[in-house]
């Protein structure tokens, strides 16, 4: 389990980093390395050059901007977990961060790395899809923003171009209620199913909601039927139970050695129910 040969560069600016990516189609960005290095070690990936972002300025901040919290791509999971700003403005991130791997890995793995990796079992992709985050990308040609709905396009696949760099993610802070649910066999394991749910509530009626599922599915997915059911309903146990049934019927889960699709279908239903119950309780 040793990587094939590769070159390593640690550019000092975004332009320089983009230059490396532009000049070599087999170059790859290195952030925390917690997903990329295992792929290299198992020889499932063999990039020609790793472009390490650790010395690129401007990627390490967590900022309070209008109606959103903007998180730099190089911010570690651990920093998100412990950020007071995050806990206050977008608490679903604090809830989810604790489920990512173990403290050692959270100390190295990064918000941007996980988002770019688009792992269907990733906590960040699931949460970012639910909250409707915006990804800020930089390419040689310039900047562009991509909404989460258009960003996670398949298993381990995003709509980023190979020569683009994810610089920040803006997480809307405008939702009233949040819930994150994960079923993992042991603390630190990838979940068998993840559910993230957010809602706006007025006079005890849900006016807007987004619900996403991760891990149990081939790529992070919105549960649109569940969202439709929620909008206009009261955030109560009855709604939660109906939402669970709709989730169970509409989700298209995967099967693997850790659980069949039938098992995961029911699990997603249970988590959706727990999430909606928590939406009700949260304020």
């Amino acid at each position: 389990m040793k990587a094939a040969k590769f070159k390593y560069v640690a550019p000092r600016s975004l332009e320089e980093a983009l230059g490396h990516l532009g000049s070599d189609p087999d170059a790859k960005v290195l952030s925390g390395g917690q997903s990329l290095m295992p792929l290299l070690a198992m020889r499932l990936a063999a990039p020609s050059v790793l472009v390490d972002l650790q010395h690129v300025p401007g990627l390490n901040a967590i900022e309070d901007i209008d109606n959103a919290v903007r998180i730099g791509a190089r911010v570690t999971h651990r920093a998100v977990e412990h950020s007071e700003l995050v806990a206050r403005r977008v608490p679903i991130l604090s809830l989810a961060a604790r489920h990512i791997a173990h403290p050692q890995i959270r100390s190295r793995g990064t918000f941007g790395g996980s988002t770019a990796h688009a792992d269907p079992s990733g906590e960040w992709p699931t949460v970012l899809l639910a909250v409707g985050a915006t990804m800020h990308l930089q390419g040689a040609a310039g900047r562009r923003d991509v909404h989460a709905d258009d960003f996670f396009v398949g298993p381990f696949t995003s709509s980023m171009e190979p020569a683009e760099i994810l610089t920040q993610v803006s997480v809307p802070a405008t939702w009233d209620r949040w819930s994150f649910q994960e079923a993992a066999v042991k603390a630190g394991d990838y979940g068998l199913a993840l559910v993230a749910a957010v809602a706006s509530v007025e006079n005890d009626t849900i006016t807007d909601a987004r619900v996403s599922v991760g891990a149990a599915v081939g790529s992070v997915t919105r549960l649109r039927e569940v969202e439709q059911l929620l909008i206009g309903a009261a955030p109560d146990l009855n709604t939660a139970e109906r939402a669970a049934r709709v989730a169970t019927d509409s989700v298209k889960p995967i099967s693997d050695i850790h659980g069949s699709s039938d098992y995961r279908r029911n699990l997603v239903g249970s988590l959706v129910k727990r999430a909606i119950v928590e939406l009700k309780n949260g304020a």
């Binding site: 066999v185 042991k186 630190g188």
Partner: peptide, 16 residues
């Protein structure tokens, strides 16, 4: 063999 890393082969940890 489908379980060739600790990702797929689950050993017990302190929390269990």
């Amino acid at each position: 063999l489908l379980t060739t890393t600790f990702l797929d082969y689950g050993i017990p940890t302190m929390d269990v």
